[in-house]
């Protein structure tokens, strides 16, 4: 999940897609896809969740200051890709590493909890079943030390 856009990979995917070899581009995680990515509503469902999450963030005095002035389009795209990839979908997160992105923000537990809460509320709003919510949270929990820069 680290690092840069890899144009070669993208180009390769495009070619493979056109030749009907799409599976070749998917991350190993997608092979064990047993409905969890689908239950999130695939990439478009995840995009809706992230949009609702952004609205909740804007309204949340615990964290909205940190987000002042971020590039919303890019944020939306990157976070959607990240959650899509983590849930075993055919996406690739191309943004910067979690630690690099969040290191300077000195994010507190209060803020981390606030974001987690808003994500759960956004998933609930999009009728994501509890089991699928938990599966996604399970994938996000390992990011905690990077995001809090511990």
């Amino acid at each position: 999940m680290t690092g840069m856009i890899r144009p070669n990979t993208l180009a390769l995917c495009l070619i493979l897609f056109m030749t009907g070899w799409m599976t070749g581009c998917q991350t190993p995680a997608s092979h064990q896809n047993d409905g969890f990515y689908d239950q999130l509503g695939q990439r478009s469902g995840i995009a809706d969740i992230v949009e609702d999450l952004l609205f909740l963030i804007v309204d949340d005095a615990r964290i909205n200051q940190s987000f002042k002035g971020v590039d919303v389009q890019q944020f939306h795209r990157h976070l959607t890709d990240q959650l899509c990839e983590l849930s075993g979908g055919p996406c690739e997160y191309t943004g910067r590493s979690m630690r690099e992105l969040h290191a300077d923000m000195a994010i507190t537990d209060t803020q981390f909890n606030a974001l987690t809460e808003n994500l759960i509320l956004a998933m609930e709003k999009n009728k994501v079943p509890v089991g699928a919510q938990n599966r996604l949270l399970e994938k996000l929990v390992p990011l905690y030390p990077d995001i809090r820069n511990l």
Binding site: E51, L54, F55, V58, D59, D60, A61, R62, N64, Q65, F67, K68, G69, V70, V72, Q73, H76, D109, T110, N113, A114, T116, E117, I120
Partner: peptide
Amino acid sequence: MIRILTFMLLLPATLPHAQASDPGSRIW
């Protein structure tokens, strides 16, 4: 929608919501 969001995030001040009355931020 995204455009509205962008606008909201550009607002200089926070919207001070009535969070003070909440019992805290840990997950339910």
